[in-house]
Computed example of a mutant assay.
Amino acid sequence: MDQFQINPWLTILQETRENAVTLPLKDKKIIIFSDLHMGNGGSRDDFRRNAQSLYSILSGYYYPGNYHLVLNGDIEELQKFKYSQIREKWASHYNLFEDFYKENRFTKILGNHDLFLKDMTANFPYPISESLELKTGNGSILIYHGHQFSDLLMRFDKLCRFTLQYLAYPLGIMNHSKSPTSRKKLKTELRAYEASSREGIISIIGHTHRPLFESMSKADSLRYRLDSLIRSYRKCVDFEKPTIVHEIKNVQKELSLLKNNPELHISELYSSEGLQPCLFNSGCTIGKRGITAIELDKDKIKLVYWYDSNKMSQYQNFYGYKQTELQGTSLRKVVLNSEKLCYIQDKIRFTGPQPFPSVTDTALSFQPLPN
C-alpha cells in the first residue's frame, strides 16, 4: 500500500490515540469484551443468546479475579433499541458494570452502534471514551472499537441507523457473529493493520466480530503452527517425534473443522513483506457457539474462548488446549493463543516498516571498505 493510501488511516489512528484515556498496565489484569449488541431482551435481541453466560463469566471469574473490565464498543444496540429499554432489561448486567466501576476497574469505549451515547454523557453513570491507551514501559497498547476505519459507516451513520431500525429490525434480521463478507472486514482490518504497523503500536479492536491474534485469524494461526511442527519434526530427537506427530494430527483435525469456512482460503491477509503482530481483535460476545475475549495478564496477552459445555458438546474437543471450568457452571474457558507482550513489542520495534534511506545513507553504504 503506497504512502498516499496509508496517510489518512495513520492520521485517524493518531487522532484516536490523542483522544485516548491512559492507564498503566503494570501489575494489572485486563479483560476486553466487545460487540455485546444489547437489546430489549426480545426475539430480535442478539445479546439474549449469551447474556446469562456473560453475566456468570464476569461475576464468577473476572470480578473476583480482580480484572479491569474494558467494554470495547457496540455494547448497546442503539441503532435498533432505545437505551431505556436496554437498561431496564439488562439491569443486572449494568449493576455488575457499576461494581467494576466503583472499584476503578472499568472502561467503556464507544462503537458505531452505541455512538449516540456521547450525546447523553451528562446522564450516563460512568465515563465513556473513544479509546484506551495502556502504557507498558516497553510500548503502548491502543484499545478502540475499529469502526474508525470503516469510512462508509462513519459517513452514512444515519442511513445505517435508518436501515437497522426501520428495515432490519421489523424483518427480524439479526446481527452476525461475523461481518457479512470477508472483503468488508478485511478492508477494515487492513487499514487498522497498516496504521498500527506504521505507528509501531499494538492495536486491539472489535467491530468485525472476527478474533485475531498477532494479526492472524484462527485459520492463519493453525496453518502457521502446522508448518512449524512439520519443520521441527526432522530436527528433533527420536523420542520427541511421537509427540510432534500427535500434535500435527490435532492441528489437522482443527483445520478440517474449518474446511467449509471461506477464511481458510485467504492467505497473505495484510503484507507479503512479513506479517507484523500489531493487530488483535477480541471477536464478539454474540457468537453462536460462544464468547471470545482478549486477556492481558501482566506480561501476557491471550485470546480466550468461553463456551457452555451443555449446549455445545460438539465443540468441546479443543485438541491440545487446556480448559478451565467456571466452578458451579457448565462454562469452560479455553486459551486459544498466548504470547509475552515484551516479545510482541520487540518484534514490532525491530521488524516494523523502516524509513527509506536518504541519499547520503545510500552513498555511504557503497563506499569501499578500508584496506
Score class of each variant (00 low, 15 high):
Gln3Phe: 13
Thr107Ile: 03
His113Gly: 02
Asn40Gly: 09
Asn261Ile: 08
Glu214Ile: 05
Ser197Pro: 04
Ile348Glu: 02
Leu186Asp: 13
Gln52Ala: 07
Leu331Asn: 04
Ile141Ser: 03
Tyr315Trp: 09
Ile248Gln: 05
Asp238Ala: 09
Gln165Arg: 14
Thr351Ala: 14
Phe149Tyr: 13
Phe116Ile: 13
Lys249Tyr: 14
Ser196Asp: 05
Arg17Tyr: 11
Ser221Arg: 15
Tyr233Arg: 13
Gln276Arg: 09
Gln276Glu: 08
Pro370Cys: 06
Phe116Tyr: 11
Ile86Ala: 08
Phe100Asn: 06
Thr188Pro: 02
Tyr126Trp: 09
Phe162Glu: 06
Ile230Cys: 09
Ala20Phe: 05
Arg289Pro: 00
Thr22Ala: 06
Trp9Cys: 02
Lys185Ser: 15
Lys135Gln: 11
Ala293Gly: 01
His265Ser: 14
Val237His: 07
Asp45Cys: 10
Pro127Glu: 04
Arg87Met: 09
Ile12Phe: 09
Leu222Gly: 11
Phe4Asn: 14
Ile244Cys: 12
Gln314Ser: 12
Ile294Asp: 00
Thr285Ala: 15
Asn112His: 13
Ile348Phe: 06
Asn123Ile: 02
Leu326Cys: 03
Ala195Gln: 04
Leu279Tyr: 00
Pro127Tyr: 11
Asp151Tyr: 13
Pro8Asp: 13
Asp220Asn: 15
Gln79Pro: 00
Ser365Phe: 00
Lys333Arg: 14
His37Val: 06
Gln323Asn: 05
Ser59Ile: 02
His93Met: 15
Asn337Lys: 15
Gln327Lys: 08
Phe124Tyr: 15
Ser272Cys: 04
Asn7Gln: 14
Lys89Asn: 14
Pro368Ser: 14
Leu69Pro: 03
Arg17Phe: 09
Ile6Ser: 13
Arg198Ile: 04
Tyr63Gln: 09
Leu58Pro: 10
Lys26His: 05
Asp46Glu: 01
Ile32Met: 06
Leu132Gln: 02
Ile266Pro: 01
Leu78Asn: 14
Ile230Pro: 02
Asn50Trp: 05
Tyr270Pro: 10
Tyr144Asp: 00
Pro125Val: 01
Met312Pro: 05
Phe239Gln: 10
Asp114Met: 02
Tyr63Leu: 11
Ile248Lys: 08
Asp119Trp: 12
Leu134Glu: 00
Val251Ile: 15
